[in-house]
Each structure stands twice: as structure tokens, then as C-alpha cells.
């Protein structure tokens, strides 16, 4: 078991490493200097791909081979997406999808 000061060290390292991943792009490309064309291009196309990555990241722990085989997740994601295309109401899509998911995993 670590001592309290060692635990504080570990937390400090986690904080600093997390901040490094958040601050690095801003430090490398400060607003005062022109940002390279390639980075400007990435800044434009990356958001769409990154949100896609985030969708999959939030679903990464579903197991298609066992349990419910990811069926509650797939149905709920499809309902959220369909409802949002149809009604374009963020609250409605999120609330209906989440309640549906909570019901499905209890069946």
C-alpha cells in the first residue's frame, strides 16, 4: 500500500498528463503565429471523425458474444438517431433513448 504522499504524487502525475493532452495543441499552435495549412485542414475535418470515434468509445464495452449481445445498445442507438432525424429535439431523443435502454436491459 502506498503512503499518502505517494498517492498525492500519483494524482499529480495523472492531473499533469491529462492537462498535457488538453493543452499541447494550443501550445504548439499559438494564436499569434499563422497555423499551418495542414493543421487548419485537420481542424476542419477532424471534429466529424472525432465525434464518430466518441460514439464508438462510449459503446466500447458492449459484448456482442454474450449477455444481451449488444441488442439493447443497438436498438437504443437506432431509436435516438431516428428520433433525432425526425424531430430534431435533443432532449426528446436523449430522454426517450435512455429510458428505452434502461427498460431493455431489465427485460
Amino acid at each position: 500500500m502506498m503512503s499518502v504522499s505517494q498517492q498525492i504524487w500519483i494524482i499529480a502525475i495523472v492531473v499533469l498528463a491529462t492537462m498535457a493532452t488538453r493543452f499541447l495543441p494550443f501550445l504548439i499552435f499559438p494564436p499569434g503565429r499563422p497555423t499551418p495549412k495542414y493543421i487548419q485542414y485537420l481542424g476542419k475535418v477532424l471534429p466529424a471523425a472525432t465525434i464518430g470515434l466518441l460514439v464508438i468509445y462510449s459503446l466500447k464495452n458492449i459484448n456482442l458474444m454474450s449477455g444481451a449481445h449488444g441488442i439493447p445498445e443497438l436498438i437504443s442507438v437506432a431509436v435516438v438517431a431516428g428520433l433525432h432525424v425526425w424531430k430534431k429535439n435533443m432532449f426528446l431523443s436523449i430522454a426517450v433513448g435512455t429510458i428505452l435502454y434502461m427498460v431493455l436491459i431489465r427485460l
Binding site: L46, A48, V55, V77, A81, H84, S93, G97
Partner: peptide, 30 residues
């Protein structure tokens, strides 16, 4: 199951982005 609210949020944002953009290559690549 309440944690699904986060997945639902990301899906909604993905759909909004999709409807805003005319070129979907990057979203599909992601």
C-alpha cells in the same frame, strides 16, 4: 443504464453534425 445518457448525447451530436455537413467522408471514416 442511466449512463446511456452519454452515448445518446454523442449520437445526437453526431446526427446534428451529419445534417449540417454536406460532405460526410470524415464522419464515416471516424
Amino acid at each position: 443504464g442511466l449512463e446511456f445518457v452519454m452515448t445518446a448525447l454523442f449520437v445526437v451530436i453526431f446526427i446534428e453534425q451529419w445534417m449540417k455537413e454536406k460532405v460526410h467522408d470524415s464522419a464515416m471514416i471516424g
